[in-house]
């Protein structure tokens, strides 16, 4: 498996880890390879958390200080290691993301941060409870620097967590939030390191201090890579906006053409991080699915829905505008999930990756049976409506449009995509097909559990979600 060889490393997806009666006999191996990769990465994560703790505690050990103090120190070390690993997790290394999907990796980043924060909180509380005299260290005016650093680190961590968990509620815009998030993360880590070295119990020896400084530097280097080095390397491979066209449902398709290079190949359903800078059209590194055919090698298209934020200005982006595209990313692609047929469930603008899949399959002359269940607010708002109807003549496609507000003479299904609707419209060979679901969170959750209830194997369902903060 080669890095970036997304077209070839289809054996890496754990969403297919369940043994399924697939069409190909090599599927068992494929599934097990995916599961093994996933388990290996989880093991590596645990090891990376525990190893620094083990080195601090087990080698050249200072005299013990009683169970609770030692336990508290252990939790502190583990919490700090986890915070360092947070930098690595979000570095979008394709090899790490491949078995899980980058969305799950980012969700993991979010969830595991609560565990790290809980460990660090426990670290402090255990000390306060078992050695009440340590509470005095909270008095930052008189406390020694090692304690001040601890307080500063914890404050930065709390602010970081609050700003991330309630970003929308406190109306913190995404762009400044991202900058703040990175800056606070570096502060939490730097103050944490200063605290650990200041306390010095386990890090009295110079080489142990050096090791922790090295760990911290590696974490920050990961951040520097993704925020500075990667963007600079993208500068050499820029794109320009070739055309912008309006789509149904307040969406705009932006066609990008590589400038002075050949661009990259992607598999249908993948996405890239788009940056459109200068002028008021400031989009910095937002994930967008490619909507064009993967067989179209002259350029790449993304379709962006106006959502009232930075996306509202997309329609006014002029041709010739410089753009940067980091990709391809993602495992939401039938090229990784070989099956005798597919069912796509799209909700609203969630049609974008599926549109790329349909266009690509049409260009490839694919004859497998396909079904598209497309939930839209109304037929007027149905993005790509005309083209999807045309694609029906080039593909073996069964189109099921589900408008929430159907016209008066509508005879097809309407309302929400629920279990009853799916049971009614899904094809006979449903248990052999693979399902790709993309749309708003409620639709994805409802579709996923409905399919499971209808006896579709879990490994046959593929989803990616981006609603992170």
């Amino acid at each position: 498996v080669t890095e970036g060889g997304a077209r070839r490393d289809r054996e890496l997806d754990p969403s297919t880890t369940k043994r399924a009666p697939g069409p190909r006999e090599d599927r068992t191996e494929v599934l097990e390879a995916g599961a093994t990769q996933g388990v290996l990465w989880i093991g590596a994560y645990l090891l990376a958390v525990i190893a620094p703790l083990a080195i601090a505690v087990l080698i050249a050990t200072p005299p013990g200080r009683g169970f609770w103090t030692e336990f508290s120190a252990g939790l502190g070390f583990a919490g700090l290691s986890m915070l360092m690993l947070q930098f690595v997790i979000t570095s979008r290394f394709r090899r790490v993301a491949a078995p899980f999907g980058i969305d799950i990796v980012l969700q993991f980043h979010r969830q595991i941060s609560f565990v790290a924060a809980a460990l660090l909180l426990a670290h402090v509380l255990i000390l306060f409870i078992t050695r009440p005299e340590t509470i005095q260290l909270l008095n930052v005016f008189e406390a020694p620097w090692r304690a001040r650093f601890a307080v500063l680190s914890m404050i930065a961590l709390v602010v970081l967590l609050v700003a991330s968990v309630w970003r929308k509620e406190i109306h913190f815009r995404y762009e400044p939030w991202r900058l703040t998030h990175a800056a606070l993360a570096v502060l939490v880590l730097a103050f944490g390191l200063a605290h650990v070295i200041g306390v010095g119990h386990y890090l009295e020896l110079a080489w142990k201090q050096g090791l922790w400084i090295l760990f911290t530097a590696a974490a920050v280097a990961a951040l520097v890579y993704i925020r500075i080095i990667k963007p600079i390397s993208l500068l050499h491979e820029s794109y320009e906006v070739e055309a912008v066209r309006e789509e149904r449902g307040k969406a705009w398709t932006v066609r990008l053409r590589p400038v002075g290079h050949t661009g990259f190949r992607f598999t249908p359903g993948q996405f890239g991080w788009l940056t459109l800078i200068h002028s008021p059209f400031s989009i910095r590194e937002h994930p967008f699915s490619f909507t064009s055919s993967a067989e179209d090698h002259d350029g790449v298209e993304v379709t962006i829905k106006e959502l009232g934020d930075f996306t509202s200005t997309v329609g006014r982006v002029p041709p010739g505008q410089r753009a940067y595209l980091d990709g391809p990313h993602g495992v939401f692609t039938p090229d990784r999930h070989e099956a005798p047929g597919y069912v796509f469930v799209a909700g609203g603008i969630g049609i974008t990756p599926i549109m790329s899949i349909l266009r690509t399959l049409a260009d490839r002359g694919d004859e497998r049976p396909l079904q598209l269940i497309y939930s839209v607010s109304s037929l007027d708002e149905m993005t790509f409506r005309e083209e999807i109807e045309t694609l029906g003549t080039r593909l073996n496609l069964d189109l099921v449009v589900v408008p929430r507000k159907p016209p008066d003479d509508w005879t097809g299904p309407s309302g929400y995509v629920d279990k009853a609707l799916l049971d009614r419209v899904l094809p006979e060979d449903r248990d052999r097909r693979f399902f790709f679901i993309c749309g708003p969170q409620p639709l994805m959750e409802s579709a996923e559990s409905s399919l499971l209830d209808l006896g579709i194997p879990l490994g046959h369902t593929v989803m990616e979600r981006f609603n992170l903060v």
Binding site: S15, I42, Y45, L46, V49, I50, L53, A54, V57, L58, T61, G64, R65, G66, F67, W68, E70, F71, A73, G74, L75, F77, A78, M82, F100, G101, I104, Q107, F108, Q111, I112, V115, A118, L119, E448, S449, L452, L458, T461, M463, R465
Partner: peptide
């Protein structure tokens, strides 16, 4: 489902770390 599986992994990692930290502390405290 993938999401729930991921949450289980997160909980598992948290418990494993607690266990390791407690064992180290026991070892140290002796």
């Amino acid at each position: 489902m993938r999401y729930r599986r991921m949450v289980r992994v997160v909980v598992g990692i948290g418990l494993a770390i607690l266990l390791v930290a407690a064992s180290f502390a026991l070892l140290e405290a002796r």
